[in-house]
Structures are given as C-alpha cells and as structure tokens.
C-alpha cells in the first residue's frame, strides 16, 4: 500500500499558508508539551503528525484548532492570529477531537443540527447539508437513531460528518481511526481522501504508519515535544532508512552471536530479542552474503523499508508511557 501518489494542489510560491508556526511552544506549569516547533502547511495539503504518546501531537492540534492558547512563539491559522481571532478562525475549520464529544442521548441528526447552530447556519441549510453528510458518512439509515448504541466506527464517522457541517477550509483530525476495525478504517480513509481531492486541507495525527502513508503528503515525526524529522513519506524513508530491510530470525538467544558474524554486512544492524534487522539497499545480496559467511537463520525475509522503520529509528523502541 505504499504507492506513490501525486501531492495535493499546493499553493503557488508566496501564497499564504493555511497554518504557519514559528517557535510554537506550549507549557503546562513546568511541563514542556510543545517545544519551539516551526512548520508551515499549504492550501490543499494533507499534513500528518506522528509520534509516541505524550510527544505533543494533541497539544499542537489544540493550538491549531484555537482551543488552547500558545505559551510563546507565533501561530497563524488561515492567516489570522488565534489569540485575537479565535472565533473567526474556528468558524472556518473543522475539528475531529481525539475523544468524541457527541451527545449520546440525542439522535444522529440532532447532533448535526445542534452543531450547525453553533456556527449560526440557518436550520434549512443545516438540514440540506446534514442529508448530504449522512450519505457521505453512510449513516442515512441511522439518522433518527440515538447515538449511544452506534458502533465506534459509526460514531467516528458522525464526528467527522459533524465537523464538516460548516464546510471548513481546514480539517483537523486527532487520531481519527484509533480503536476502529480495519473495515471502518478503510472507509474513513476513503472519505478523507475524497475530502482531500475536493481541496480541503487536512491536518492529522495518527499512530498508524499505513494511515500516514495513505493520507499524508507531508509528515512530521514528533518526539519529546519536538520535531525529530519532517518531509514526505518517501523523503523520510530515504533519509532515515534504507531501501530494503533483511529480517533474519535465529533461535532463542542466538541473535547476538549472529550479529557478530554479520558485522559490516549492512549499513545498519539492529538486534532485537527475536530477530536481526539488517538495513540495506539490496536485501537479496545481503542474504546471499550472510549465507556465504555461514549464517543459518531459521527464517529470512526481505522487505521494503517502511515509515515504521523510520518512526522506530527516530523515536526508539522503548514505550513512551
């Protein structure tokens, strides 16, 4: 699923970015949640924030969504300053928060109607849009059902539909598919991809590398409140990993010994408890060489490098929390 896709329509040089951050910083008391980020997101682009839990992704999202004031640095969203023009900015962006804020006791349609009223849209307009959005989210048949019994995927789709009621120019999605089954995730990706092709700028946080590769033109890998790397998925893989990875499994407790035997064979070798990862541009050649040196792995696998390799290299393999 790592096909190369043309980047979305990006602004001509000199055009104002949808989001511009310079030295963007967020502190909670002594805790530094976001530490001096610089980034710029162009019109029609889809930009992803990757990172372990606690890396500062959600804090960054909340600042862009004008729900949380920056402690210092500059932030411009749609060319405006969130500190002084929050309501005007929020009127033109859609937010899909990490935790749903749907009213579970009310119906699917009522949730859309109420949300549209917050944006001061006339009821007639909301009703027309709601009809289209329910179709878009495949929830038309559940329009008059309460939200409570809906599945996680349906609730998430409703949250996304709701965030689109104001027809935003910029859509902010904080972990849109966490906790969903594969079918629900693929349906959501399809919907987000459609929005992207309609010219909506997307800002996404995710834990899923396949999601990032599917949806994002450009990615920032966050770790400890900062950017560890930024670029297109392809650039990140080229810069931080090799073209291919050779995975060799030896028996229990034999990885270290094998690593000694294979020293210098790959650009980089990683020793895991259950296998060796050899980062190389030619996996098959590396495997032949390993056999020539007398290595007898239980299994061998050559695969292409993925964003996951980049992510783990940049943020480490230890748990963040």
């Amino acid at each position: 699923m790592t096909g190369v896709r043309p980047a979305g329509p990006v602004d001509p040089p000199g055009a104002e970015p949808m989001v511009l951050a310079r030295g963007l910083t967020k502190r909670f008391g002594d805790f530094l949640a976001v530490d001096g980020l610089d980034f710029s997101i162009g019109r029609g682009e889809s930009y992803g924030f990757l990172g372990p839990n606690g890396a500062g992704k959600t804090s960054t999202m909340r600042m862009i969504a004008c729900m949380s004031p920056a402690t210092s640095g500059t932030l411009r969203v749609l060319g405006m300053d969130p500190a002084t023009e929050g309501p005007a900015i929020r009127g033109r962006i859609g937010l899909v928060p990490q935790e749903d804020t749907l009213d579970l006791e009310l119906t699917v349609l009522d949730n859309l109607m109420i949300y549209g009223r917050y944006f001061d849209l006339p009821r007639k307009v909301i009703r027309e849009r709601a009809e289209r959005l329910l179709d878009f989210a495949q929830l038309t048949e559940r329009a008059h059902d309460k939200v409570e019994p809906l599945s996680g995927g349906m609730k998430r789709r409703l949250t996304i539909a709701r965030s689109l009621i104001s027809e935003p120019d910029l859509l902010i999605l904080d972990e849109p598919t966490t906790g969903l089954d594969p079918q629900a995730r693929h349906l959501l990706w399809d919907r987000l991809y459609r929005l992207k092709s309609e010219g909506v700028t997307l800002v996404i946080t995710t834990h899923y590398m396949d999601e990032a590769e599917q949806l994002c033109d450009r990615l920032a890998v966050m770790d400890h409140a900062r950017f560890a790397a930024e670029g297109t998925p392809r650039e990140l893989i080229d810069r931080w990993s090799t073209r291919e990875v050779l995975e060799l499994r030896f028996g229990p407790d034999r990885q270290e010994a094998a690593a000694g035997l294979l020293e210098g064979l790959a650009e980089r070798t990683e020793v895991l408890p259950d296998r060796l990862l050899l980062y190389t541009n030619d996996g098959d050649a590396a495997l032949t060489e390993a056999h020539r040196r007398g290595a007898v792995p239980v299994s061998a696998l050559v695969r292409r490098s993925s964003l996951e390799d980049v992510f783990l290299r940049l943020t480490g393999r230890t748990l963040a929390d």
Binding site: A65, G91, E99, L102, D103, L104, Y115, Y118, F119
Partner: peptide
C-alpha cells in the same frame, strides 16, 4: 461526561 462544552468551544463560540 458528554464534553458538550468542548464541542461548543471547537465552534466559533467562546
């Protein structure tokens, strides 16, 4: 429990 205020605050409401 429902986080209704946060839904409102994501809109133009202050």
């Amino acid at each position: 429990w429902l986080r209704t205020y946060f839904a409102m605050l994501a809109s133009p409401l202050d």
